[in-house]
Computed example of a mutant assay.
Amino acid sequence: MGVTLRLAHLSDIHFGGENKAAVAAAGEILRGGGFNLIVVTGDLTQFAEAPELEAAAHWLATLPEPRLVTPGNHDAPYMNWLERIFRPFARYERLIGPARIQQHLSPGLAVFGVNTARGAQPRLNWSKGQISRGQVEEAAAWLQTTDGDAVRILACHHPLTEMIGGPMTARVWGGDKAAEAFTEAKVDLVLSGHIHAPFAWPYAFGDKKTYAVGAGTLSVRERGVPPGFNVIEIEEQTIRVIAQGWTGSHFEPQRTWSLDRRG
């Protein structure tokens, strides 16, 4: 693959608590073009209230296609317990799009999105993630059927393994086994959010060429890192992850990771 693929990876916009200036500036960059795909890995809203979801849907509609959007734990209703338990992503699906899985396939690129968020689960902190064996098998099977030269990407909200030194945890049930399975399936990147801080590193399995990549937030809920998003540049031998940080007036590169691709 001689031509560079460029992806924009955003997460945790939290409409209802968004950084309005940063969101507007990010939109201008995305509308400027040059991206093969825009990926948003969940937490579009603060409480999944209808006005927040409507604002998120309106903003997404201003962005160029193609787009792939996964839900996060904040995209299940926070105030309505019954809806959160029995129909956690009904509002999201009505206004944003499919919650269970999302797929994108284009020359040189295959992306599969899964929902690691739950409206309710048998532990007190419902915001933490889960990924089932069925979800892993479905995603891995689909990605493995794609062109062997394509970049294979899994998108979800919660990091499957913990960010080293991160400002918070994801504690994904099934996450370590999922990370190992995706490495065996030769997935190149696993994109996530939730932590509100950018990161990139290899999973400690197999050939160590499957990389966890996290995007920051575009909300006012900063955790020691300015609002931001990732630009991902994919070449034949290298993947570059460029974390864009908000200065208060514009975005500029904050940190860059260079990741070796599989031979």
Rank of each mutant, 00 (worst) to 15 (best):
L63P: 01
A21D: 11
A185K: 12
T238M: 13
V151Y: 13
A139W: 07
D75I: 14
I164C: 05
I101Y: 15
G174I: 13
P122D: 03
V241F: 01
Q46P: 02
A117E: 02
E83W: 03
R171G: 07
A197H: 06
A8E: 06
I29W: 00
E93G: 03
D176H: 14
Q254F: 12
G17Q: 14
N19W: 01
F35A: 01
G32L: 02
F35I: 09
Q121S: 06
D75H: 09
L143P: 01
Q237Y: 15
R240I: 00
R221C: 03
K177L: 14
P253L: 03
R261P: 14
G129K: 11
P88T: 14
A24T: 07
V39M: 04
T116R: 09
A200E: 08
G175C: 06
P66H: 00
V172F: 08
R91H: 05
A140D: 09
A185S: 13
D176Q: 15
L218G: 00
D207H: 15
Q254W: 11
E137L: 10
T217L: 00
P77C: 05
E93F: 10
L143K: 13
P64T: 00
L143F: 12
W173N: 05
I96A: 03
R100W: 08
D188Q: 10
V187C: 11
T161S: 03
E138M: 07
T256D: 09
D149Q: 15
I239M: 05
K186S: 14
P202Q: 11
E49A: 05
D260C: 04
V190C: 11
A204G: 12
